[in-house]
Computed example of a mutant assay.
Amino acid sequence: MDRETLRLALVVGGLVLAVLLGFGLGRLNPPASPAAAVPTGEAATTVGDHSHAPGTGAHSHDGATVTRGGGDGATGLSISSAGYTLVPSARELTAGSAGELRFQVRDDRRRAVTRFAVVHDKPMHVIVVRRDLTGYRHLHPTMAADGTWSVPLTPPEPGAWRMYADFTAVADDGRQVAAVLGADLAVPGGYAPRPLPAPATSATVDGFTAAYTGTPEVGRSAPLRFRITGAGGGAAPLEPYLGAYGHLVALREGDLGYLHVHPEPTLDGDAVTFWLTAPGPGRYRMFLDFQVAGVVRTAEFTLTVA
């Protein structure tokens, strides 16, 4: 082999070796998962065994990432997500009759899941709503030893209903996977859907008035500050409910995309501050749960996002 041929062979061999070494190092040191990232300069807030960075806004419970600017954070659109499947025992209930909602969450091996992390004081949060965004219920079922969840449910009216199971499962290896799964329920009978009320920034329930300031934006985390006042106009003495001073669920008209937003851990004066990221333009129905004197009430708002 002459000198030039030898030199060319050495150069080519070196390039091949560099590529192979780079590939191997990449496999040994994969990039950090975005799901584990916490915004710079902010400490994580842990409730139960599940953490969120403060001020993150609408966070996805589908096992993917915490939404903070960009991306569609609406969940609950699928019966399966993040390796888990929602399996209702029956999908038909009777309007006005005491019934029971029963279901399991199964993993990718079709096994009923029985290990769940406690998040906001409960291992399972269930939201039930009619498809015209009326009849909202926030329920907390109990689980049997075989992984079957059950909770009493009396649908007030016939129609097409939607259930959401919001949970954090604990996998065999100890990983915690947050997910929101959704399924349709049928309540036979004459269905007369009602139009959404006009958008408003205040709502009255049982003599309390809930009002908010702030303007949600598509793809950006924006603060909504809610103040609750009593009949005399003074600030209501809010009490912690499920580990927070309020819980906010927003459902998107049309596909019923689900956002479950939790507030800052402390009050801002007399205001409860939520950070909401609107996944897209359109109309939303917001449901604010708050507790005063041991009673939980729900204020409802229609919101239009441009």
Rank of each mutant, 00 (worst) to 15 (best):
G219W: 01
A160W: 03
P88A: 15
V295Q: 14
G232F: 12
P197K: 14
S221T: 15
Y258D: 01
L139Y: 12
G219R: 02
V151F: 06
R27N: 13
R115P: 04
P279S: 14
A179T: 02
E239P: 03
T209C: 06
H59K: 09
M163V: 04
I79H: 04
G41V: 13
G41N: 11
H59V: 15
R131H: 12
H262P: 07
R109A: 13
L77W: 00
D49A: 13
V170L: 14
G22P: 00
P281D: 15
L303F: 12
E217A: 11
H61V: 05
T298K: 04
V295E: 15
A64H: 01
G41A: 12
H120L: 15
L288H: 05
M286C: 11
A200Y: 11
R110Q: 13
V126A: 09
A278I: 02
A37P: 03
R115H: 08
Y136R: 01
Y164I: 12
F208P: 08
G26C: 13
V128T: 09
G83T: 07
P155D: 01
A32R: 01
L21K: 05
A165T: 01
A271H: 00
A169D: 04
H247M: 02
F290R: 10
T298Y: 02
G13M: 10
A98S: 15
V105W: 08
L10I: 03
A58K: 04
V87Q: 07
G254T: 08
R220S: 03
Q291C: 02
M286K: 02
A236Y: 09
G294V: 03
R130P: 06
D108H: 05
G234M: 10
Y191T: 09
D255S: 03
R91L: 11
T148Y: 10
F287N: 08
A44M: 07
P31H: 08
H125N: 00
L276N: 02
G233I: 00
V19W: 10
T209V: 06
A169E: 04
G55L: 07
A179N: 00
A165D: 06
D62G: 01
L259M: 15
R27G: 14
T201M: 14
G57W: 08
T40E: 07
I228T: 09
T277P: 06
H247R: 00
G99M: 10
G69N: 07
V296D: 05
Q104V: 07
R3N: 14
A183R: 09
A18N: 08
D121M: 15
L28I: 06
D270I: 09
L256N: 10
V126E: 06
T273N: 00
A74L: 06
G83Q: 02
V66I: 09
G294P: 05
V11P: 02
R285Y: 13
R106T: 08
V87N: 03
